[in-house]
């Protein structure tokens, strides 16, 4: 009795005090800046002070100014392609690896797991620079190998041809991050009760049928989480383009993503003069946020259609996405 009344007395102010340091830092350096950046998208000014309210003018320029909107829609479209290829390549390979590794008694699982995951721990900048060297048209390993095996005609200037450049950097991104979906699918597969497989095998279902009838349906929530994770990560991608192509997204803006476009408009300014347009940058950030929000909301709907759940089930994957941000 004594103790519980003590707990009640200590409630309120005291517990708030516990949460206070975290609340302050989190509010001051995350919540407020994010909201404020959206507010700033309605302002213009010189350099880093934005004090002139311009209504929707920044958005108008973003969507209607011929110069700016061309760049914006190009980057927006590229980001969707980036996301699409990543979904197709990175997550399919991840699922395949997880299926193989989850096989009963598969030897070497630990070692392969460790290897597949290595690139996740490396800096995108570092892997980007190295892949750039490998893809070099003159002395890059890829074209040398292609030429040696008689496919010299396929040796392309991968990063310099608008047809291939975006695909090339996307594949490098897939290479880097494939460890995440692999491990998430693996964890999902390992949670499927043994009896379900056994039942399927007694029914005479082969590998493919077991996959389609038993594994895939049970993995669907993980598929959803992986998709959201990829989505959030891809709409924030910057480093891979910065390292492999530069902040302009060359050749002819073929690899310009929302991340690089934001950097050029809002932070660095366009080379060579370099005067940033921070109000416009804030508008780009706000649009990115809106797209992310809509996407996450949609995924949440699809995944939790049956039972109305709060933010929590979606929370974790979004945090995973931070890894790539």
């Amino acid at each position: 009795m004594n103790s519980s009344s003590k707990v009640r007395r200590e409630s309120g102010a005291l517990w708030l005090l516990f949460a206070l340091p975290a609340l302050l830092v989190y509010a001051a350096f995350m919540a407020v800046p994010v909201i404020n950046s959206m507010r700033l998208s309605f302002f213009s000014g010189s350099g880093y002070t934005l004090d002139n309210f311009v209504g929707f003018n920044n958005y108008l320029r973003l969507f209607a100014d011929p110069e700016i909107s061309a760049r914006f829609f190009k980057a927006f479209g590229n980001t969707w392609v980036f996301f699409g290829i990543n979904m197709l390549v990175q997550n399919t390979i991840g699922l395949l690896f997880a299926l193989i590794l989850s096989g009963k008694g598969f030897k070497g699982k630990g070692a392969f797991r460790t290897i597949i995951f290595i690139p996740v721990t490396l800096s995108v900048l570092v892997t980007g620079y190295i892949w750039k060297l490998i893809l070099n048209p003159q002395w890059g390993a890829l074209n040398i190998i292609l030429t040696k095996v008689g496919l010299g005609a396929w040796a392309m200037p991968w990063l310099g041809d608008p047809r291939f450049a975006l695909t090339a950097i996307t594949l490098v991104s897939s290479w880097q991050w494939v460890g995440l979906p692999t491990m998430m699918f693996l964890a999902g597969l390992e949670r499927i009760p043994e009896e379900l497989f056994e039942a399927a095998q007694i029914d005479g279902a082969g590998g493919w049928l077991t996959f389609a009838r038993v594994k895939l349906p049970l993995l669907l929530p993980v598929v959803g989480i992986v998709s959201v994770l990829t989505f959030v990560g891809n709409f924030n991608a910057f480093d891979v383009v910065f390292a492999m192509e530069g902040a302009n997204g060359p050749p002819s803006y073929a690899t310009d993503l929302m991340g690089t476009f934001f950097y050029r408009t809002g932070i660095a300014g366009q080379h060579p003069v370099g005067i940033p347009d921070m109000g416009l940058g804030a508008a780009v950030a706000t649009v990115t946020f809106a797209v992310l929000f809509a996407g996450v909301l949609l995924a949440n709907r699809l995944m939790n259609g049956r039972e109305a759940q709060g933010a929590e089930p979606m929370a974790r994957p979004a945090a995973e996405g931070r890894l790539r941000a």
Partner: peptide
């Protein structure tokens, strides 16, 4: 905050 990438707030 888990669903919001902090980069969005870079300008501010």
């Amino acid at each position: 905050g888990l669903t919001v990438p902090i980069k969005i707030g870079s300008v501010n």
